[in-house]
Design a protein around this nucleic acid. Structure first.
Lengths: 243, 243
DNA sequence: CGCGGTCTTGAAGTAGCTCAAGGAGCGTGG
DNA sequence: CCACGCTCCTTGAGCTACTTCAAGACCGCG
């Protein structure tokens, strides 16, 4: 696998060892590309009959708004991730999706996907794997919000992001670019913006990491992993798990 | 559909209108029945090569334990629910499952399920629907833990449970039996046991609901729905959504 | 009858919230 | 080119919704 493949192909290639033919087929799903501006919902809760997408570039957020106006962000989507895969199945979306940055995404027809599956069953395995990884991430997110204090929660979140970005070549162990505002992080982690700011300052002062100006710099990876009990094997595998 | 069918068949019948032949086929999945004692894990995190089950009677909990010993319960399973469906796919479980009460469950082989699917595609639709409902419930759970205060969180939780139990004939609008200890509720909702106790007392004093001695009594359904902004349509449909 | 789990209540502490106000970066229009 | 109006970041001060600790009551069970 080379860097010339799409983030989507790179990601799946990390799960399941794929042949060139299979990787090219995955890239082939990237026709019908669209661009979405940031800050405007591309999928509304309750909306029916929309499509699924694969993110080509940019970040998005899926979230719910409560009656009192507060927002819970369920997950962020980065290049290579599916957007709204489940809501295609359910026919009606159960949450909103809004680009965080300008977003390029390719519309994926269920039929195209299924054709690829019958043609190349290993691809089906990989997609299923990716889908259940997404579900596992929501569970992990729930655990964090329910039982971890703010500092550990934020560290865990930033490490997870690092692992995910690394998979598509957008992060190193030293750091990564991150377009999320402190407000977005707060709404994802069930905290207030103010508190996120304070914790980020503490982490900076402790020499653990710096998150500023859209960039996360990791100063002490071992320290971060130790304090957050981040599971290295959870998302951070080197090489495909299934040969 | 009559009450003589299994909870599983009842539940799916509420999603998709199923013929007698289809309902009977679903009941047919309930061979290979096993009994699990309460309080002992039936599936461990990291365990591989275990089976999926359908709960026939009793309650179970799926949860994760953090390094500091605290526990986050991700979901409870009631009769008619799948147990460990995703971990069959992933090969290795990403959370523990422990019966809350004595549990009767039927082992389901992936092959049996797939045979039923090819034979009766509507069943596949129904199972897929149930699976994505489960996922939607985890998301809703995350929203609650992240953004709702303790009172609303508990009310929402108990109303959701009511809706789910109603689907399998184990609850009425007046109330239901609930074997969960306050400690279990606390670990599901990211609260302390003590605080759950206090909030429950408040709800009782406000004449909204009583949760005592393993029984939830609903005194003021409209009041509860109003204060928690519970979405009536979310799980509470009357009649199948897909004819 | 005593014992472990659950429930209940009080008292005191604290993590994280809200409110408030100022600064820094940046696009936009005068 | 500067002034403006954003949005985002930063910091302080005070508050409150929760937590932890502690102790007693209840209850089913061996």
């Amino acid at each position: 696998m080379t860097a010339s493949h799409s983030p989507f192909a790179r990601k799946l290639g990390a799960f399941v060892a794929l042949s060139d033919r299979e990787l090219i087929a995955l890239d082939g799903l990237h026709t019908r590309r669209k661009v979405f501006p940031s800050g405007r919902d591309m999928i509304h809760e309750g909306q029916t009959n929309h499509s699924a997408y694969i993110v080509a570039s940019g970040w998005a957020s899926s979230y719910k708004i409560l009656s009192d106006g507060s927002r819970q962000i369920v997950d962020f989507q980065i290049p290579g991730d599916f957007l709204g895969l489940r809501s295609v199945l359910c026919r009606t979306a159960d949450h909103n999706i809004e680009p965080v940055t300008t977003l390029e995404a390719s519309e994926v027809l269920a039929s195209d996907l299924l054709d690829t599956f019958t043609d190349m069953p290993r691809v089906a395995t990989a997609v299923l794997w990716a889908a259940s990884r997404d579900e596992a991430m929501v569970v992990e997110h729930l655990v964090g919000v329910g039982r971890r204090d703010a500092k550990v929660r934020i560290v865990h979140f930033l490490l997870e992001l690092k692992s995910r970005l690394k998979l598509v070549g957008m992060a190193t162990s030293a750091g990564y670019d991150c377009p999320l505002s402190q407000n977005l992080v707060a709404d994802a982690l069930g905290l207030s913006t103010v508190h996120v700011n304070r914790v980020l300052r503490e982490l900076r002062e402790d020499g653990l990491l710096t998150f500023r100006h859209g960039h996360v710099e990791i100063h002490d990876l071992d320290g971060l992993i130790a304090m957050s009990n981040f599971d290295r094997t959870y998302l951070d595998e080197e090489g495909p798990m299934l040969i």
